[in-house]
Amino acid sequence: MLLQLFSRMIQLIFVLLMLSIATFLLMKMAPGDPVLTILKASEGAVSQLDQEQVREQLGLNLPLIQQYGLWLWSVLQLDLGRSLVNNRAVWDLMMDRLPATINLTAGAVIVLLLVSVPLGVVAAKYKGKWPDHLSRLFALIGASIPSFWLGLLLVYAFAFKLNWLPTMGSGDIRHLILPSITLGFVMAPEYIRLLRSGILDALSQEYVRAARARGIAEWRILAKHALRAALLPVMTIFGMSLSGLLAGSVVTETLFAWPGLGSMVMEAIIQRNYPVIQGYVLLTGVFVVTANILVDLSYRLLDPRIRAKRGRGV
């Protein structure tokens, strides 16, 4: 187990290195210039000389390799640099935004669970009957609706017409409801279908027949024997969803003016704020690898056979 964790750490370092090189190069290749953004913010007219000066100050005139090397060196000293726009430390910027994103992630996961588990279980239990069709219809609609449109619909209905909830921004828990529902609903269809097929597969197994022959109640078979088997593939997808959510959902956060990482990086990209983008990419890299480790751990909890196999070797 420790060995596995260690190998994951090595893997993490490689992932982050590759990721940072790729984003660094892609950012430089993309059109746009942070210098212009910075200067435009402060003064009206921008002379060529001013531009050169600022560029030199920021080290943007150095060769790419050297720029990357300098950045990497400071990262190794645990310094992610400063924002080109307001000179705040990138780390502080991200830590300002992270709580909002974590709140939204938690909200979305709760909605996801509340929607997908009952619908998936019911669809499997009543396969081919109306609850199954209903769940299928719901999944189809959910998968077809883009999140920005669903978000707008929700805002229209619950904030504008009914005036129950705030339209956007953050503050108390009421602000969290609409963005969470938007994210949770859009993710749910995949989980509903996956749970349904996983449970149906488990229900056709010999051990379910054996449990039935022993008179175990049907709901108990479903909850204890079949659902657990169905959770394995779900956890794989969930790992990906989780890292995606933690990285911040650009569309939903922008739509609801939610002050999370997604809207932060959106601004940074528009401003060509290189250090912020780089820092963000590193952070999401850490999230992805961490989520993968958590998924692995959940496998070991769910299936003792995996525990044994991994425990022996690797």
Binding site: E206, A211, L302, P304
Partner: peptide, 16 residues
Amino acid sequence: IGCVFQDYRGSFTPFI
């Protein structure tokens, strides 16, 4: 009515 089946691997849920 008790039952015993041929497939002994399938007579118990694998992760319990």
